[in-house]
């Protein structure tokens, strides 16, 4: 789809095609870290950072290495290794350059390797045949969309502490209900832009 502008994709990935609320990716860590706004901010920033890098590195690897060699079926392994490598690399760079950032993001970085949002955005950008700039915009938008959703949910969960929840629905159950309500709210954006 060469005709869609990267800016449109960036916008769409945050609002109309939110990777979390529309494609349900990255739910595990979404539920695990949305306890407090502080941790949500930390992991959200880390995910945004890694997803931009992964999209920027994943596109050339897929289109310039795997496709010419006819090895598309290896995409899962290659993307997973790429993400794991990138996370490791980012971790080392941050540790060297900024100790405070490392202390804040430290425990979240390894978690990103198994965050399905990152692998998912790679697979989607390949499936939808995006170009390089479109892929980077999609990666950045997805990361930001995840960031927005997780921070918003963390804010809502802090209020839930003061509500009476049925015992069987406590914890993750009520979180999923709240996430569903947020998904309904985000449906209000539907129809503004279409990217597929």
């Amino acid at each position: 789809m060469p005709e869609i502008s990267p800016f449109v994709i960036l916008f769409a990935a945050v609002f109309t095609n939110n990777i979390l609320l529309v494609y349900f990716l990255g739910m595990c860590s979404f539920i695990a870290v949305s306890n407090t706004t502080q941790t949500a901010l930390g992991l959200g920033a880390a995910v945004t950072f890694v997803s931009v890098l992964t999209a920027a590195a994943g596109w050339p690897v897929y289109h310039l290495v795997l496709v010419p060699l006819g090895l598309e079926y290896l995409q899962f392994i290659v993307f997973i290794v790429l993400i794991a490598g990138l996370v490791q690399f980012v971790e080392m760079v941050i540790e060297r350059k900024s100790q405070t950032l490392y202390d804040n993001l430290g425990i979240f970085l390894p978690l990103i390797t198994v965050n399905c949002a990152i692998l998912g955005l790679c697979l989607f950008m390949v499936n939808w045949r995006y170009g390089f700039l479109q892929s980077v915009a999609w990666g950045a938008g997805s990361g930001l969309g995840w960031f927005v959703a997780v921070v918003a949910l963390a804010g809502l969960r802090q209020k839930i502490r003061f509500s009476k929840v049925p015992p069987a629905l406590e914890g993750p159950g009520i979180t999923i209900v709240v996430a569903g309500t947020m998904a309904m709210a985000f449906m209000g954006f539907a129809g503004m832009v279409a990217i597929r």
Binding site: L21, V22, F24, P166, A168, L169, P172, G173, I174, I176, V177, A179, G180, T181, A183, M184, M187
Partner: peptide, 16 residues
């Protein structure tokens, strides 16, 4: 999408 969330929440609720 929202029905997926609500459906899962209801199943979790009943099973728990």
């Amino acid at each position: 999408a929202p029905a997926g969330f609500f459906g899962l929440a209801v199943v979790i609720w009943v099973c728990r």
